[in-house]
Amino acid sequence: MSEWPEPAVDYVQAISDTKLVLGHRYAEWSLSGPSLEDDIGGASAAQEEIGHVRQLARELESQGRDLDWLNGQREPEAFSNAACLDSIEGTWTEYVASIAPADRAAWYLLDAIDRDDLDGLITKMGEDEYFHLEYHDARLETLAEDNPETVQRTLETTLPQALALIGPEAYDEDADPVFETGFTDRPIAKIRAAYIEHYRRLFDGTDVSLENVDWDQPALEDWDETRRRTGSGSISQTDVEQLRGEKNKLFTMN
């Protein structure tokens, strides 16, 4: 397997960590949905995200990252997940308005990767992601009718956090280091524009206003390029222990 340019390794690490925590959140909330169908969808998405992480971990291992470290043997601050997944407080509405922006952002980053040797892998992930994202949008539309204040308030926090995972606006075609290496086929600025446009269109004509969302986040000078976020937040120590699965090691089948 050929060597990736250095900034690309962190780029994929952030996608992988976001999916790792996303899978965990899906599983945590998979008995809390308003209907059995929502729970079935959540449980199935959890399994798919974990499947994606397993493959991304193989790729990252081939680029020199330690497999135990990838699988959770590290401090909470060493995870590069989207900040909107750090902790989810509130009801199922807050949950959906937190995971949806993260899942879509991670997919847009993956979809931008332009490598022949990752083509099949990403196509396969896209087959799963189509249904995750379509379900989220369908759910956000109904929640925008039922509970617009909560959706709006949550998105005002989570959309800028998901945008921080994507990266700063300043990373246009002349400044994005990953794009410059040819690892991706479009610069961050372009990915952001598609992402922002999607949510604007989704909530257009609903009672959810995105007027107060800070679409300029993250500022380049505040942005941590490795963790793809601003600020020093992280998942909790308990989350890390659960991700490692140590308590249930007894039940491992291998």
Partner: peptide
Amino acid sequence: NVTAQSDRLAKMYAYNTFD
């Protein structure tokens, strides 16, 4: 059958439930 609040959601429920 499925019960859903919107056509779009009904499609996703059907996809996930009858898989």
